[in-house]
Amino acid sequence: MTPAKTWRLWLVRLILGLWGIQVLWLIWHFGPEARDLAHRAASGSLGAAIRQEEPLYRWAAALQAIIPESATYVFLDDYAAGKEIEVRYYLAPRRHILLSPDISASFLFYTLHQEHAAFLLIRESQKPLGHGVQAALHSPAFHPVNLPGPGLAFRVDANLLRWGFYD
């Protein structure tokens, strides 16, 4: 074997050695998830049962029974929290409009009226309620839906909405 070929062979062996270590690391990395999978398989809590463990899902599932499929709802949340997309997924094909929790009352009321939204959903957050939400809580156009869960839900009577006087 030529020295050049020996050198190349050692290089390949080095890469294969590193790969071997990396395979062991992968087993360690995915270990916890594999263990979770094994535990769940043993206990039979799989598929839809995993979702049931999530309070947000249970809340959305309860809302499915209340919000008609043809209805539109406005959801107040920060997109980056990643919860809004989950609620949208659970409630699909209901029409979904995302607005910021810090939205002004006038724009919130305008959107609800303009988009014929029948429901307003607000996900619980550490931040204090914004002006728009506070105005909604005190407006006769919003009727609370009594559902336990990580959020507030209101039926909206669009005919009672007035906007332009709340900011």
């Binding site: 999978l37 598929g47 979702r51």
Partner: peptide, 22 residues
């Protein structure tokens, strides 16, 4: 690992829930 992980867990990853699965 991957087959049961796919088939036995609901959709949860960001783009799956936000775009493709939705």
């Amino acid at each position: 690992y991957a087959l049961p992980r796919a088939a036995l867990y609901p959709m949860w990853a960001w783009d799956a829930v936000a775009t493709w699965g939705c």
